[in-house]
């Protein structure tokens, strides 16, 4: 199918006797962002590097833009943009020169000025790269990956070390790329980044896919239990609260915690009780499991 940009089936790869990737499957559709999550050493980077053409696989089927990346053909490389984990830019060129140099390697590059301002380096165009801050070099790195007008972009931890506003800007940039119909494969350790950007999250642990889904449904997150917490009011015993005993509420350091599938009725009872007694429910929190909770659950045993 034409809108499957990446298809991976039964991918395996070993280094020496160590099985880094043990049968990974996933697909990515055109215009989507796939976030690959997983602990360090789980096989994420190996998987991505096979897709990028840096590594040869041992087994399984891999198709990137309809081609086998292990052949490293020029046409495929001109349709793919890669940002590696390490910032890799020549120190002695200026920002504009570095992007112009890279543009010259591609058949259909984006205008250099457009790329410079896309990555927010408009004011730095004539500065030598070695004078840029770490975050600015990282954004240049992203610009270098985008100048070739890639249909598919690999971003390996692209916002590590960014300040919050630079991260937001990068997220906007990625959303813009997807709106143009480009596909993004993102590896990240930031769950909020995956939550904000990904159409699909795939969690890899110990060389296998342990969960896959949208950020909101991953690992049954949408069906997970809700946690309700509040400070036990002074002079009130736990048994006085309108809590059904079968929920087995716990008190830790004076904080009551209850887990249940749906908190609607419970909240009604609790707040009604508090209002009737003129009590305040300090620190009342209602929380669904975050992507991070689900992630830690999924990867915890394999760590």
């Amino acid at each position: 199918m034409d809108d499957i940009v990446i298809s991976v089936k039964g991918l395996t790869k070993s280094y020496g006797g160590f099985e880094a990737v043990r049968g990974v499957d996933f697909e990515v559709r055109r215009g989507h962002v796939l976030a690959l999550l997983g602990p360090n050493g789980a096989g994420k980077t190996t998987t991505v590097e096979i897709l990028e053409g840096y590594r040869q696989r041992d087994g399984g089927e891999v198709s990137v833009l309809g081609r086998d990346p292990s052949h490293r053909d020029k046409e495929l490389r001109s349709r793919v943009g890669i940002v590696l984990q390490e910032c890799a830019v020549d120190q002695y060129l200026t920002v504009t020169e570095a992007i112009t140099q890279r543009a010259g390697l591609y058949p259909d590059p984006r205008p250099v000025d457009e790329v410079v301002s896309m990555v927010g380096l408009g004011a730095k165009g004539r500065c030598r790269i070695k004078t840029l801050s770490g975050g600015q070099q990282r954004r240049l790195d992203l610009g270098l990956a985008l100048v070739g007008n890639p249909e598919l972009i690999f971003l390996d931890e692209p916002t590590t070390g960014f300040d919050p506003s630079a991260r937001r800007e990068s997220w906007e940039l990625v959303r813009g790329l997807c709106a143009e119909g480009r596909t993004v494969v993102l590896t990240t350790h930031y769950m909020d980044e995956a939550q904000a950007l990904a159409d699909q999250v795939t969690v890899i642990a110990a060389g296998k896919v342990v969960a896959s889904g949208t950020p909101d449904t991953l690992g049954g997150r949408d069906q997970g239990e809700t946690t309700v917490r509040f400070v036990l009011p002074a002079g009130v015993e736990l048994c006085e609260l309108p809590l059904p005993p079968d929920l087995r509420p716990e008190v830790r350091c004076g904080v009551v915690e209850v887990r249940l599938p749906d908190a609607t009725a419970l909240l009604h009872d609790l707040t009604g009780w508090a209002l009737a007694r003129g009590q305040v429910l300090d620190g009342l929190k209602v929380r669904r499991p975050s992507l991070e909770d689900v992630y830690l659950d999924l990867t915890g045993d394999d760590g």
């Binding site: 990028e52 020029k74 490389r77 590696l84």
Partner: peptide, 15 residues
């Protein structure tokens, strides 16, 4: 350049 990853990056372009 190899140490800085510049060569690896080049290898990912169509050059």
């Amino acid at each position: 350049r190899r140490d800085q990853g510049v060569l690896k990056r080049m290898r990912g372009t169509p050059i």
